[in-house]
């Protein structure tokens, strides 16, 4: 069945030969809240979160899938939100760093482990690291420190907090009942 998403925006005045500015209505569940919104097709999930939703916890480090700072959980899986056009994710559930802590402010065990192990310095890659680590645990493919290192290599940290990041994840894994090492 054709699902040409409702193109609600009229073609904007644009120079000859240029594609018209079309807005598309999509629904996203962001950190548990279902929202309907209009997006242009060229808006990435990252820019939507940061610019439209003011959820700036998700970071833009390279905008090209080379650093992992923009990592969010999309339908439970970690992805680079900078390479995801929002319009293509209609109906998805998005979990960002802002949605990890409990409503009463209690930190998610991964967040708490990052604080305890000083697993960050400047903090800019941190939300992406934490979302990625949450995704990693969910995937269940990492059992050893070596595997954590490999499967966290999509998240660059220029401050070089890697050993502490691995320690934090090992702790969170143990708390979650996953045997590390």
């Amino acid at each position: 069945m054709p699902v040409d998403p409702a193109a609600t925006g009229a073609a904007a005045a644009s120079p000859a030969g240029r594609a018209p500015a079309m807005q598309h209505r999509i629904t996203l569940t962001i950190n548990g809240t279902r929202r309907q919104m209009e997006v242009a097709p060229w808006t990435t999930l990252l820019d939507l979160l940061r610019e439209e939703m003011e959820l700036t916890g998700t970071k833009k480090g390279c905008d090209h899938g080379q650093c992992g700072a923009c990592t969010v959980l999309l339908n439970g899986q970690r992805i680079n939100s900078c390479l995801a056009l929002a319009v293509t994710k209609d109906g998805a559930e998005v979990l960002t760093v802002e949605g990890l802590a409990a409503a009463d402010g209690t930190l998610h065990p991964m967040q708490a482990a990052f604080v305890e192990h000083d697993a960050f310095q400047c903090g800019y890659c941190t939300p992406g690291q934490i979302c990625s680590a949450v995704g990693l645990l969910k995937e269940g493919h990492a059992r050893s420190a070596e595997e954590i290192r490999e499967l966290m290599s999509g998240n660059l940290c220029r401050c070089g907090a890697y050993p502490n990041i691995v320690a934090a994840i090992e702790q969170a894994m143990q708390q979650a009942g996953v045997a590390a090492r």
């Binding site: 940061r50 003011e54 959820l55 700036t56 916890g57 998700t58 970071k59 833009k60 960002t96 760093v97 802002e98 990890l100 802590a101 930190l107 967040q111 708490a112 990052f114 604080v115 305890e116 000083d118 960050f120 903090g123 800019y124 941190t126 939300p127 934490i130």
Partner: peptide
């Protein structure tokens, strides 16, 4: 001691230059 700004950084609440509006 754990960083006093740790909570802000792990929750995404710490604001960087391009995030003020």
């Amino acid at each position: 001691r754990s960083r006093v700004d740790g909570r802000l950084k792990v929750t995404g609440a710490a604001k960087y230059a391009g995030e003020f509006t």
